[in-house]
Design a protein around this nucleic acid. Sequence first.
RNA 1: GGGAGCGUGGCGGAAUUGGCAUACGCAGCAGACUUAAAAUCUGCCGCCUUCGGGCUUGUGGGUUCGAGUCCCACCGCUCCUACCA
Length: 852
Amino acid sequence: MKEYNPHEIEPRIQKEWAETGIDKIDENSDKPKKYILEMFPYPSGDIHMGHVRNYTIGDVLARYWRMRGYNVLHPMGWDAFGLPAENAAIKHHSHPAKWTYGNIDTQMKSFKRLGLSYDWDRTVLTCKPEYYKWGQWLFEQFWKRGLVVRKKNPVNWCPHCKTVLANEQVIEGRCWRCHSEVEKRDLTQWYFKITDYAQDLLDGLDNLPGWPKRVKQMQENWIGRSEGAEIDFVLCDADGNAPENPTKDDIITVFTTRPDTLFGSTFFVLSPEYKGLDDLIRGTKYEADVEKVVELYKNTTDLEREQGDREKHGAFTGRYVLNPVSGKKVPIWVADYVVAGYGTGAVMGVPCGDQRDFEFARKYDLPIVPIILQKDDKLYDQLKDEQNTVVTSVDWDQAMASEGVLVQSGKYTGMIGGKHSPAVEAIIKDLEAAGKGRKKVEYRLRDWLISRQRYWGNPIPVIYCPHCGAVPVPEEDLPVRLPDDMDLAAGDTLATDEEFVNTTCPVCGRPAKRETDTMDTFTCSSWYFLRYCDPHNDKAPFDPKKAKYWMPVDQYIGGIEHAILHLLYSRFYTRVIHDMGLIDFKEPFTNLLCQGMVKDANGETMSKSKGNVIAPEDMIKGYGADAVRTYILFMAPPDKDLQWDEDGLAGVYKFLNRVWRQVYDLMGQAGEATLFEGARAKVKPEEAKKTLIRERHRVVGKVTHDFKTNSFNTAISAIMELSNAAGAYLRAASADTRDEAFCREIAEVLVKLLSPMAPHMCEELWQTVLGHTDSVHLESWPTWDPEKAQADKISLAVQVNGKVRAHINVAVDAEKDDVAEQARAAVEKSTAGKTIVKTIVVPKRLVNIVVK
RNA sequence: GGGAGCGUGGCGGAAUUGGCAUACGCAGCAGACUUAAAAUCUGCCGCCUUCGGGCUUGUGGGUUCGAGUCCCACCGCUCCUACCA
């Protein structure tokens, strides 16, 4: 018998696979398809354990489904544009491409060393003109569909990365990439109108049963739909006089989810960034105070804004509006607790019903009555006397509950108020009839800011002409290529590259300038899964026929950090491409698995600064790729975080070793190296064989079931159980009492079941020991007979009042009455002197005897 | 503040979805083999016990013949989100 030596086997088998082209995809297959995809990596140095976990899961699934008779698409590529490459280039005085391709090469070698079964001829690199050309083409298609806008807005600016960021890329006020604090700047930028798809993206979540609940929840929160109304308030003078026929300029509109509290609105608040604010205060004595609030707001970072309960700051503008239902004059304030970008940037203050408004009213001594929501009678009685007086001090320290019965609310008094309440419906109806308001749905989702002031990205294919404005680059001129001769360290940018910038207008032919911003890298990753279906197409981003065959992705695997970012953008792109008529589905990923993180033995995340990083390479050097793969799946369910523990890896290595020896032993090739007499078990060979037959069928069923639910950890423990049963049989049966055909069957089943996880070892055993000429990975998955997984006699627990008191052995198909009788006899001792009330027989499980 | 999820031995984790809690593995203990060690193999391994048994899935209650699993309350942890009106 040869020793198990992964370091000799693995590279040799890998070479063999590469030579025979076992992983090449056949597009003309008549088998059903399966598209297994892992989120492609960013080429930042060599791979880490998180990659190993991610790509092992995908590879195991791909190998499994191939054995199940599917035509499997399992591609790999790199998300190759991005800032780290630029930073590295600046540091080393080289070009981002050099760093990027170097890392891709390193990572590809590591992936090959892990034995991942990709068709490397279908690799997609997003930084190649063949790919980014179609990203530009899609940009122009979006443009044609009215989904591209250029607008001036307050935007998130990362001072470290020197570029703007999308809302989704600001995490707790910091840049998602470098964690620098983000600043606000007013800039003109390019946007994709993802908000046009807000409702569709939200609705689509209901059609994704194969997605983790928490990911859907996160997207739902991010889209943030709320129903309410827009209400028009008319400006009036200090005496409450308003123009009879107000024009647009006389009206300020608010958005509220609680129009039912309109009677309780005692003041009005504008965001410091409210667009018409200047016009209201210019030249008045209030201007200075308002300016102070505006300045304070501008100097507050998002990070500061997120600190718990911040103190609110505001100032009176000197202006008033009329409450559209009560006709009362209310003062307009400016306050920093009103967000500019949401709703209309204006809010009606209802201090008795809203905690924020209450706090603001308290601080600036604004009226809190009339109270318009009543929760208990006492509170209302207390306020009754004061109905007609303005009272600024009320006997409580927080706003009243936001739900209850409306009081002091004109004709709505007595109705039930609250979100989605009858009062809301009634007031909206009346406001609509009076032309003073309308039903409105707001979303938290903002348009996707896609321009980046960086070099290493996909150029935005736009030309600015002094006469024609911004025009897209004609399709036949695509791609707009990134210039190669760049010295970023010397300060070169696209904007300083005269040759790149200066061009002619495609419309009028006069001199014009190119856009020098590039697109967010997330635009590259929003459709790469479609490109994999047809990676070499130079006429189109992909052939719709090929996409129809392969898409959607049956199983997508990646980290939870993309729950909103990449997964939302991809759903958006897929919808637009659907609306372009190129595909007939809206959801790109049918099933999604978000794998947990790989942490160190203390449960800490691995990082270079902590010095606790475990290099996959070192683990492979120690135990081989098969052991690392099997272990990372065995340690925990795939969606849970796992703690790396090298002792556990050694344990799995031992297990592989045991299977190795067992297969030799089962095939009668173990020679002297096998068991010694002292290990002979006392079990009879026939008994051990019976058990092993049962285990063989049960375990194949179990593993097959576990693959359906991505429970790789329990699949592996089931294979360990089969190996344990095989070991028991080998110890019980001597060489001359063995059933050779049966032994071979067990060996083949073991090798096949384990082959997705430990592909090299199983390939070696399959060919060398089991004597096959073809690859085990081209074999079909073993079948099983549920009947044979069942023992003919089984042990049942006998409970008395729910407590196990005895065990009985019965035939599987025993009659209920006979089982009950046998059970009662078995627990006579416990039931003596008591009355048996009931006997519950659960077939194949247990018997419960109820006594009094 | 709002939302989601989780809580099982010394550790990682299992439990066919309401039916024998602790599968499988790690660590540990004892033994076989060995001059010895490693490797391998065997057995033990939740807690308490007066050896009859008793207790045990964060805590307390409930539903049920039966609850780790379902319901209610509380405690603790994790993640997401946040002056979003």
